[in-house]
């Protein structure tokens, strides 16, 4: 019966981020938070494994104070207990700092049989957390998994790579990163949402993790973040007659030498 830990990130919903035309800076004032897309798949996968094999699902997140907003949502998705680290250092944390903090927390909370992450976060998409955790914790890592089977301590994963599907087997404990296609995350029922409020959550203070100051010092710093603007012609044909629109479009394509 596997003891699972899912690491997840509370991110801004990129659909709500607007680019300010005057200076191309990002306006995230209206952006709501969400559990990073692929992390929802990781939570779902752990919940599915435990429904089948028994065991337990806990979740862990490192973020700014906003991470608290995620607890009800994540606990309504099948996790039994949430651990959270809210610290201002998360604001500028790079993948190295994130992995250092998560690994230290896992050493404190663990051991776990399966440590699951999404393939990458919706905001930074560094795609580093799972292999970094494996390196820091001395565990094997199965990345980019599209199908996962757990039987006793044997974990079998189908990984989807650019040119092949690869089946890999390992005896746990193991760190796993999942692809979005591995499952369809549940939409929590009202009962699950109400039940989430009764589930335990526990704060871990970053000071209690025994980290050195340099462990919290980001090595990669983002600078000059600017909205991406495409230079396009934006010619839109919207007459009521489809035939007329098509005639104009074909003329345009001909002028570009494309037909």
């Amino acid at each position: 019966m596997p003891k699972c830990l899912v690491c997840y990130k509370w991110t801004l919903d990129e659909q709500d981020i607007k680019i300010k035309p005057e200076d191309l800076s990002l306006d995230s004032s209206r952006a709501k938070g969400k559990i990073s897309d692929f992390d929802r798949n990781a939570v779902e996968e752990a919940a599915l494994i435990v429904e089948k094999e028994g065991g337990a699902v806990e979740v862990l997140s490192y973020g700014t104070a906003a991470v608290k907003l995620s607890l009800k949502d994540v606990l309504s998705r099948g996790a039994e207990k949430a651990h959270w680290i809210a610290d201002p250092s998360a604001e500028n944390a790079d993948a190295a700092v994130t992995a250092n903090v998560l690994a230290a927390a896992i050493r404190k909370l663990g051991p776990y049989d399966l440590i699951l992450c999404g393939e990458g976060s919706s905001d930074l998409f560094n795609q580093q957390t799972a292999p970094r955790l494996a390196a820091l914790l001395g565990l094997p890592c199965l990345s980019f998994v599209q199908k996962l089977t757990v039987e006793g301590s044997t974990v079998t994963a189908t990984r989807k790579l650019e040119d092949c599907q690869e089946t890999a087997t390992v005896s746990g404990p193991v760190v796993i990163s999942v692809l979005s296609e591995i499952n369809k995350p549940r939409i929590p029922t009202l009962k699950q949402v109400l039940g989430a409020a009764k589930k335990p959550n526990e704060e871990i203070k970053i000071a209690d993790l025994g980290l050195k100051p340099e462990d919290l010092q980001p090595k990669a710093l983002r600078q000059s973040v600017k909205g991406f603007v495409m230079q396009r012609r934006n010619v839109v044909y919207k007459e009521s007659s489809a035939a007329e629109n098509v005639a104009k479009l074909t003329a345009s394509l001909a002028s570009e030498g494309l037909c």
Binding site: A95, A96, Q127, F144, L161, E162, K219
Partner: peptide
């Protein structure tokens, strides 16, 4: 930056305690 490459790179970065850009 294949998926295999990203796996290797992130592992090595963690062991080096280095930053990594994807």
């Amino acid at each position: 930056g294949t998926l295999r490459g990203k796996h290797v790179a992130a592992y090595v970065a963690a062991k080096l305690n280095a930053g990594m850009t994807t």
